[in-house]
């Protein structure tokens, strides 16, 4: 995806009188996977919401923009911890939701192809209640891919899955989202160590960048380099307040 822009945020945010994060700045390089790692409550999700244009109710003094100068509206896809599938729609209809909400052609063939890529060809006609948690999150990934947006914002999308499904989803997402600018909010050091091409640690003190191991992503979960880096990230997380 050659038109994937870099993302930049600088400023401070409050909800009412309560500060969420102080003055900080971060940059997610174009076409790369950036993990925004940090403990709960430091405002990671707020960063995503600002990029997604969902900043109502957040008093934000600063800017959250694409570096190519074009507005982010309409160039962003969002995937969260909850799959947000509509229970009355089958998997295919859920994947084509965006088109149907915009009143454009749903492209059912492409939806089926994408469902095939996430390994759900057999389940295209099933409703969410007939799918496992991991399968539902694959449908959500397919819906995100169907949107075909250059910027993808992930808010702990794998944290509710069991360890095996999580590792599989990490591999799948890395493969299918390659080339897009991905900003991935997570509180899991192991996940950041596997997936991040850029790793930003967000704490009350601000944002610090930590260069990940050389290996290409998704890094092997049991490679010594990955494990050592994961340990280091966890240590940093533990030492922050």
């Amino acid at each position: 995806m050659s038109d994937a822009p870099a993302l930049r945020l600088s400023g401070r945010a409050k909800i009412g009188a309560a500060p969420i994060f102080g003055p900080l700045s971060l940059r997610a390089p174009a076409g790369e996977w950036t993990c925004l790692l940090g403990p709960s409550g430091v405002g990671k999700s707020t960063v995503l919401r600002l990029f997604a244009g969902l900043g109502d109710g957040i008093a934000f003094d600063g800017e959250a923009v694409a570096e190519d100068g074009v507005r982010l509206d309409g160039r962003v896809a969002l995937m969260g911890q909850s799959d947000l599938l509509m229970p009355w729609l089958d998997a295919t209809a859920n994947v084509t939701l965006g088109a149907r909400l915009r009143g454009t052609s749903p492209g059912r063939d492409r939806a089926r192809e994408i469902l095939g890529r996430v390994g759900l060809s057999e389940h295209a006609d099933k409703r969410p209640h007939a799918l496992s948690g991991g399968q539902r999150q694959r449908v959500a990934l397919a819906r995100t891919l169907m949107e075909d947006r250059p910027v993808v914002l992930l808010d702990e999308p794998f944290s509710a899955l069991d360890a095996r499904s999580r590792a599989q989803m990490q591999d799948l997402a890395t493969e299918l989202l390659a080339g897009r600018t991905v900003l991935h909010v997570t509180h899991d050091a192991a996940e950041a160590a596997r997936l991040g091409q850029t790793i930003l640690l967000m704490t009350r003190a601000g944002i610090a960048s930590f260069p990940p191991p050389e290996a290409s992503t998704p890094r092997l979960y049991d490679a010594p380099g990955t494990l050592a880096f994961q340990g280091r990230l966890l240590r940093l997380l533990m030492d922050t307040r």
Partner: peptide, 24 residues
């Protein structure tokens, strides 16, 4: 969260009403 998803998808208000809010 459904309404926010729809917003990020640039949904029109009438379609959000008819395809998300009413069925829900």
């Amino acid at each position: 969260a459904w309404l926010e998803l729809a917003r990020v998808m640039n949904a029109t208000p009438a379609r959000v009403l008819w395809r998300v809010r009413v069925p829900a």
